Amino acid sequence: MIELTDVTKSLNGHYVLDHISQSFMDGQVYGLRGKNGAGKTMLLRAIAGLINIDSGQIVIDGRKLHDGMDFPPSLGILIENNNLMPEYTARKNLQLLAKIKKVASDADIDATITRVGLDPNDKRTVKQFSLGMRQRLAIAQAIFERPELILLDEPTNAIDSDGVQQVRTILLEEKKRGATIIIASHTAEDLVVLTDEIYNMAEGRIYEQTDAAK
């Protein structure tokens, strides 16, 4: 469970997160909807521990972020400029990441690469991939360690229609596994199909909650 209490962050005297209080429960998919600059990506960054907030607190499973815990302990993330290493293959990228936590085997890596529609035996480096292939690999790196928390910014960006359906299926499977998933997206259909609740954002605030079915 993730609990945000009065979370604020300002840049150049302007609130990018404006006193946000919100809870996110296990096994649910949440959508963040809003225009560019609404605060969606900044909220994901705050929950991921990638920025220090000015005030308030973020508590994950009873532990306060940035108080003996720099990042959520079980996190998969895809936010803007991903950390893919262009000089390596898809498999090598995930193998290098796997060395940090040591929870995913080579078999897990190959299975996840296949799951997102790529070939684990492809010898091309990431810099030779199309934008859609890079996005698929970015999703793979977010899920291959079976994290409890998955944060995704525009997950279907640059992916063709068949790939979009594949990604949606994967995320619903991750939800069924029990992961908490928070998605920021401009694609209305993604939010309606995938999420249990949608939070509308503007000027760094969550100003409305809607049922995804509506």
Rank of each mutant, 00 (worst) to 15 (best):
I47S: 11
L118M: 12
L97A: 07
K102V: 09
K102M: 05
R134V: 04
D211I: 15
G68R: 13
I170N: 06
A111P: 02
N12D: 02
I183R: 12
H66T: 14
A142E: 08
I206N: 05
K176C: 12
L43I: 07
A184N: 10
G27W: 07
A158I: 11
I206T: 01
R134P: 00
D18P: 02
A98K: 03
V167I: 14
Y207R: 08
P72C: 05
R33K: 13
D108S: 08
E173W: 01
I60Y: 00
T195D: 08
T114R: 13
L44P: 02
L75C: 04
G56P: 05
K127L: 05
L4T: 09
L171W: 10
A142L: 03
R146G: 07
I20W: 03
L151R: 14
V29M: 15
D106Y: 03
G31S: 06
S161C: 13
V116P: 00
K176V: 15
P120L: 12
T169P: 04
P120A: 15
K127R: 02
G34F: 15
D162T: 05
E154D: 10
I198H: 00
V16S: 12
N12C: 03
K102P: 03
T210P: 02
L11R: 14
G132I: 12
A140M: 08
L94M: 11
V167P: 10
R91P: 00
V16F: 09
L97E: 09
Q165L: 15
D108T: 13
A184D: 07
I206V: 02
I113T: 08
V126S: 06
G49D: 13
